[in-house]
Amino acid sequence: MIRHSVAGILLWAVCAGFVSAQTPTPAQTQPPRATSKPYTGDLSIFDYPDRDKKLQIDRVMDLLGITAGKNVGDLGAGSGWFTVIASKRVGSTGVVIAQDINPIAIEYIGKRIKKDGIENVRTVLGLPDDPGFPPGSLDAVLMLKVYHEIAHPVTAMQKLKPSLRPGAKVGIIDKNGNGTAHGVKQDVVVKEMGEAGYSLVGTYDFTKADHEDYFLIFTAK
């Protein structure tokens, strides 16, 4: 009876190509961080009165450089609440691209803009790890309380980069949390965006004075 050592069998497997000799990197062995389940409920709840004032959305758009003629991406648009506001800001010479991974949200936004006669909005059905915006299409992007739902944020943000025009700003409004309760810590976002190839250019805490919300602005490196 022939006996083989564990080391000998492993060496044979490596040489035969059945097992990789490369040692797994920390990124390969570390499990993904916790994320929140994407919202699939009643979309109308996002259109509550005074939400624009509580989030100081005009100031947010000022800091993102959203002005007449700009192309804006609403990543994780949901009900299209921000999409509609931004469409007024960019005017007839600009475009807002409303993106979501939920087909129901895309349908909801489509009906909304048709009902309201809004002609400068386009919709994109994205994938969980790929926003799906057209290449070179965006001057600014806002992720409003959606970053914590992205399962593989580094991959998704890397896929976003080709859609950004030179100098484009990417804004993230979220709240501090552990990832599972519709919030993720600010320093985690900064770390992941850095890994995806972005530089932090602005940090603010004026959105919703609850000491949990934050507003970060990034540009692609």
Rank of each mutant, 00 (worst) to 15 (best):
32 P>T: 05
104 I>R: 13
52 D>Y: 12
148 H>W: 01
206 F>L: 14
112 R>W: 09
105 A>H: 03
96 V>T: 00
40 T>K: 12
195 E>Y: 11
215 F>I: 01
209 A>F: 15
35 T>Q: 05
198 Y>S: 03
17 G>F: 05
85 I>L: 14
121 V>Y: 00
146 V>C: 06
219 T>V: 15
199 S>E: 14
100 D>Y: 00
156 A>F: 05
178 N>P: 11
43 L>M: 12
74 D>Y: 01
156 A>P: 11
132 G>Y: 01
20 S>I: 05
1 M>N: 12
14 V>T: 12
179 G>H: 05
128 P>I: 05
200 L>M: 08
9 I>M: 05
130 D>I: 03
182 H>T: 15
185 K>E: 13
109 I>P: 00
27 A>C: 07
167 G>H: 07
88 K>D: 06
14 V>R: 07
110 G>H: 03
42 D>V: 14
189 V>N: 06
39 Y>A: 07
100 D>A: 02
68 A>G: 10
148 H>M: 08
195 E>M: 12
210 D>T: 14
139 D>G: 12
16 A>M: 11
80 G>Q: 02
66 I>M: 03
207 T>S: 13
97 I>S: 02
51 R>Q: 09
3 R>S: 15
25 T>M: 04
108 Y>R: 06
177 G>C: 06
176 N>P: 11
43 L>I: 12
51 R>P: 04
29 T>F: 13
48 Y>T: 14
95 V>Y: 02
41 G>S: 08
212 E>T: 13
211 H>C: 10
72 V>D: 03
169 K>G: 07
195 E>H: 11
88 K>Q: 08
171 G>M: 01
11 L>R: 12
131 P>N: 02
90 V>A: 02
68 A>V: 15
207 T>F: 14
85 I>F: 09
54 K>E: 10
167 G>W: 04
65 G>V: 04
24 P>G: 10
93 T>K: 05
148 H>T: 04
95 V>H: 05
48 Y>L: 15
134 P>M: 13
108 Y>C: 05
90 V>Y: 00
55 L>Y: 13
82 F>N: 11
128 P>C: 06
18 F>G: 10
131 P>K: 00
120 N>G: 03
79 S>V: 06
201 V>A: 06
110 G>C: 03
72 V>K: 00
5 S>Y: 08
67 T>L: 06
145 K>Q: 13
68 A>S: 14
7 A>T: 12
143 M>A: 08
150 I>V: 12
163 S>K: 01
108 Y>Q: 03
216 L>F: 14
99 Q>K: 02
16 A>W: 14
143 M>R: 02
217 I>C: 08
103 P>H: 06
24 P>K: 10
211 H>F: 09
67 T>S: 08
48 Y>H: 11
201 V>I: 13
40 T>L: 08
158 Q>K: 14
148 H>Y: 02
53 K>C: 09
24 P>M: 13
135 P>I: 10
132 G>P: 03
165 R>E: 06
95 V>R: 02
210 D>P: 15
12 W>S: 10
8 G>M: 10
56 Q>R: 15
26 P>G: 04
54 K>C: 10
79 S>E: 01
93 T>P: 00
156 A>I: 07
99 Q>S: 10
79 S>D: 01
